[in-house]
Nucleic acid binder design. Structure first.
Lengths: 215, 215
DNA sequence: GCCTGTCTGTGACTTTGTCACAAAGAGGGT
DNA sequence: ACCCTCTTTGTGACAAAGTCACAGACAGGC
């Protein structure tokens, strides 16, 4: 087995939606190119046009917007077993990418050319369902993000972020990275974290934040 | 011709994507219920589940999020010839609505039951394209809204809003309504408008804003 | 005229974002 | 060990935006 192939079994394990569709899986894989990527690879930029749709096998991708002021905000992240739905969106809506994407860890994906993807969509309802469900979920997530950014306080959002992102109560990240996920500035994150430290809720060190109270 | 029917010709004029698909149009209309609505009708609330997809014939719909503090923000508006894509999103993703929708003028729509819509999707690529394109466009719009809210200044956003919404340089609206579209509070809108008036860029009266410089 | 409900204006204060700059680690080379 | 450099963090001063409280202005009915 060559390193550049993926078996239908491996694939259907990652993408359970396709588990009963051997024909679909086979067709999909026949057209696909498998590629691996290191962390920090920019997959596309806002304004690019696109030529295929990516199915993520391993690793993670961050989709984000970048403001003129230099600040950034993460729209959502893509994990194994998901497709980079913005590809589909671009292909089917015939538009440029509305956001940027960068890999946040190394991993692998398979790339299906736009034309083949379109053909599969027309002939397999499973594929329609899969893509629609993912697109709908993203739309809902981004709508919820609008709500967060427009109405919620930064200290609450930061606290939730820390709890969500810290595996065992410790998060390894710079304040700048946190700020770029939340859509605020590094200074604000530093200030709020310092306040939380003074309140005894966490302890700070270079590149690491340890939650103290088990909230 | 009864008031509760729509001819395929009328329909394809409003929805040009379906112009060469008489069979599709006929099937769609066969299952559809036509309904009219007054301004201010709440079509659904965040958390509702949904049973059909709406094709808008006339009038306009506002889709918005509502924060705990009482503030609101408009995500986008739906016009004639568009479908309320969140319906499709809910049907195909099997989820509750992620936002609220209210009519901002009287109008008419046709409602296609979820089951029939699904069937049409499976058998007509035109329908797939139509729904995907609209869903993609909305996703792009909402992403851009995140950018606006997270990074841009309110005075700029307000000025753009006024220019876009004022037909002939005059906009009839309360400050509260403007605030609810932009996702801010009434006081902020009042203050910014007063500043702009002092700068000679517009003149204010109860329920009306007149732009003075032809920007 | 007067009454009532809606709409607008504004001061005081808090939260968030910006700018400028200082200080504290981390890691390399010698 | 020491020095040098780059990254990361801390903080004061100010600007922009959101909150709260309340006053005044306007429209429409009586």
């Amino acid at each position: 087995m060559s390193a550049t192939t993926i078996t239908p079994d491996e694939f259907t394990q990652l993408f359970p939606r396709f588990r009963l569709q051997h024909e679909l899986t086979t067709q999909l894989l026949a057209q696909a190119r498998r590629q691996s990527f290191p962390a920090g690879t920019h997959l596309y930029w806002e304004g690019d046009s696109c030529s295929g749709i990516a199915f993520l096998l391993s690793g993670a991708i961050r989709v984000y917007k970048s403001g003129e002021t230099g600040r950034e905000i993460t729209l959502y992240e893509i994990g194994p077993g998901e497709t980079c739905i913005l590809n589909a969106s671009c292909i089917l809506g015939n538009k440029a990418y509305p956001a940027n994407a960068v890999t946040i860890s190394g991993g692998e994906l398979i790339m299906v050319p736009a034309h083949d993807f379109r053909r599969l969509l027309g002939s397999h309802e499973t594929m329609i369902d899969f893509v629609f469900a993912l697109l709908s979920e993203r739309l809902g997530e981004v709508m919820e993000l609008v709500n967060e950014v427009a109405f919620r306080r930064m200290d609450e959002r930061l606290m939730e972020y820390l709890i969500e992102k810290s595996g065992d109560g410790v998060l390894m990240a710079t304040h700048q990275k946190i700020a770029s996920d939340l859509g605020t500035s590094r200074e604000v994150v530093s200030r709020l974290l310092k306040d939380l430290e003074r309140q005894g809720k966490l302890s700070l060190a270079r590149n690491s934040i340890s939650l103290l109270e088990d909230l």
